[in-house]
Design a protein around this nucleic acid. Structure first.
Length: 575
RNA sequence: GCGCCCGUAGCUCAGUUGGAUAGAGCACGAGCCUUCUAAGCUUGGGGUCACAGGUUCGAAUCCUGUCGGGCGCGCCA
């Protein structure tokens, strides 16, 4: 039980007592009552809004009600002071022993500190990356990959049962294009001089695929009509691309539990069943959509399509499930795919590029319709990464094939830097990534600053060992002063940060929190420059050193736990 | 034309799901630091939270409208 939960319980008991005494009417809704650390540390350790929330319904005013609650809080052993402030906040100060105890808890729970049962085993499916299997991963995919993976890990820490999933778009026209591109490389491998026409994939990552085909098939398909080789080449090439993508993802430490195939969804009859289910619910009809507004396209012709009434669920227009050719639209298969996921989960989360924002509502509509509202789908939209090299933007052109691959970036700056940087902005805000800045050893670089904090703790312990500090016996944490306990208070917020980040589906909050914590540690450390008595390592005062080593260990532990959620390894020392 | 996302310090961005005097880093100003514990430290100025209404004890946060930016807008994926 966290400190905050414990005080929420204390407060609940106090409110019960006030009811019993007849000072407060019974049955008040306490849902909005919160016990939280105040923003401003000068307001104390904990604050509650109880008096403000309940006053009106209790027929009194906030400050009067606060005056009833405060003395009962003050009577608690753990509380050193209570004051009513502002419009009716009740600020609580805790005795130092509480924070000494919390420090011990951090150290004893170790890597489990910050884990929570918030999710209570709720099954969450996080679908992320899902890049088309037509080439290597590039930086455009990278951010979604990291955000999705960190979110999955965050949810696990918060007690959810998480499935990491990748949807393979192996059914559309572009995988045919891929197969044709590979076929050209196959002919090339057999000695032909080829030219890659506009519209096919020019990347030389298909060269080895063509060579493998040449080795396996000889010249069997060189002169054969497309029907004879297309399906074969498609399957094989997609498999090769997926191997490549998996290898790229592994460079970032990302491993999915499930790779779901769009072609399989279509071939299994799942899409047909979904269509029938929706039809039974009266959500399918044959109809003609209106021409798009705004830009007039000349080739638009009214065509009757099989439409899903997504407008019933807030979409702007109904959406086609099937093409006029009779094959499934991407959405048609996607609806079936989402039902497949929903069958094994209580919540769905998709990580998508922001350019897919327009398709969110139709898929949410399908999930709501197909699960009768049982399953919630949250779509996190991830904005672009703008690449720079020492301030100069790097231009990428997909058509020319000169995009920056994920593997290149990881090779240059390392997995940990990439992962951390991808989480230094809210997902839906654009992010600048400068190759020079992200490896800079300075305070301006959050990766460095956080890693440095951890390395500093490690270094401190190495120095302490070298100095022969006696580490036996129980450290006396009562030697820590208010400044030092302030560090513990910040560290103690970690479990709350994990829970709120998990609930908001926002892993970047961990990165921001760690930056704050690192800054606080560095600030405390720097005090030792002006005042040697404040240094962590004081050979002439072993007892105090011992207590401070415990403090440093605890901060290091929190940094490590936070980085673990982000999938970043903590540095033992800086190079 | 419509929908979604966004608009917070000169710049880049946070803001604990509606809390108190809106924060951090850069940049700018002023001191300190010639090594004590590894990449400097301390401190100051800087704001109509795009704008206008509304909801309530209380709004950067929720609702409505306006302005501005990004993305998208029949069968692509």
């Amino acid at each position: 039980m966290t400190l905050y939960a414990r005080f929420a319980a204390h407060l609940d008991a106090i409110l019960d007592a006030l009811e019993a005494e007849g000072q407060l009417p019974g049955g008040l809704d306490r849902k909005a009552v919160a016990v939280e650390p105040p923003r401003d540390a000068s307001h104390g350790d904990l604050a509650t809004n109880a008096a403000m929330v309940l006053a009106k319904r209790a027929g009194t005013n906030p400050r009067a009600l606060a005056g009833l609650i405060a003395p009962k809080l003050e009577a608690l052993d753990e509380v050193s002071g209570v004051e009513v402030a502002g419009p009716g906040f009740i600020n609580i100060r805790l005795v130092p022993e509480i924070w000494q105890e919390e420090l011990r808890t951090i150290l004893s729970e170790g890597e489990d500190y910050g884990r929570s049962q918030l999710g209570a085993g709720t099954r969450v499916n996080v679908e992320y990356v899902s890049a088309n299997p037509t080439g290597p991963m590039h930086m455009g995919h990278c951010r979604g990959a990291v955000v999705g993976d960190a979110l999955a890990s965050l949810l696990e820490h918060a007690g959810y049962a998480v499935t990491r999933e990748y949807y393979v778009n192996d059914a559309g026209g572009q995988v045919d294009v891929l197969a044709r591109s590979a076929w050209l490389r196959y002919r090339e491998a057999l000695g032909e001089t080829i030219e890659i026409p506009e519209g096919l994939y020019p990347g030389d990552y298909l060269v080895p695929v063509g060579q493998a085909f040449a080795a396996e098939f000889g010249d069997r398909y060189v002169a054969a009509p497309e029907e004879e080789w297309l399906a074969l080449f498609r399957t094989r090439t997609v498999a090769a691309m997926l191997d490549m993508i998996r290898a790229d993802l592994a460079l970032l430490g990302i491993h999915h539990d499930v790779f779901a195939s769009e072609a399989e969804v279509q071939g299994s009859g799942a899409a047909d069943r979904v269509l029938e289910t929706l039809r039974e619910k009266g959500l399918i009809y044959q109809g003609v959509l209106e021409a798009p507004k705004g830009e007039t396209s000349e080739d638009w012709e009214p065509v009757e399509l099989t439409l899903f009434r997504s407008t019933r669920f807030g979409d702007d227009q109904d959406r086609p499930m099937k093409k006029s050719s009779g094959s499934w639209t991407y959405f048609g298969a996607d609806a079936a795919y989402h039902l497949q996921k929903a069958d094994a989960a209580d919540q769905l989360i998709n990580i998508w590029g922001a350019d897919h924002a327009g398709t969110v509502k139709r898929v949410q509509a399908a999930v709501t319709a197909l699960t009768d509202g049982r399953v919630d789908l949250d779509v996190k939209l991830v904005q672009m990464v703008r690449l720079f090299r020492a301030g100069e933007p790097i231009k990428m052109s997909k058509r020319a094939g000169n995009f920056v691959t994920l593997a290149d970036v990881v090779r240059e700056v390392g997995k940990d830097v990439v992962r951390f940087m991808m989480l230094t902005r809210r997902a839906d805000a654009p992010l600048d990534f400068d190759f020079a800045k992200v490896v800079e050893a300075s305070k301006d670089n959050p990766v460095f600053y956080v890693q440095y904090a951890h390395a500093r703790v490690r270094s401190l312990h190495r120095r302490a060992a070298e100095a022969g500090v006696d580490l036996t016996g129980t450290p006396d944490l009562s030697l820590l002063d208010d400044e030092e306990l302030a560090l513990v208070k910040l560290a103690a917020q970690f479990p709350r940060v994990v829970e709120s980040a998990a609930q908001a589906h926002e892993p970047h909050r961990i990165a921001f929190y760690l930056s704050d914590l690192a800054a606080a540690l560095h600030a405390q450390w720097n005090k030792g420059n002006d005042d040697p008595a404040k240094r962590f390592l004081l050979v002439q005062n072993e007892k105090l050193t011992r207590a401070r080593l415990e403090l440093a260990s605890a901060i290091g532990q929190i940094v490590r736990n936070g980085l673990a959620i982000m999938g970043v390894a903590a540095a033992e020392e800086m190079q």
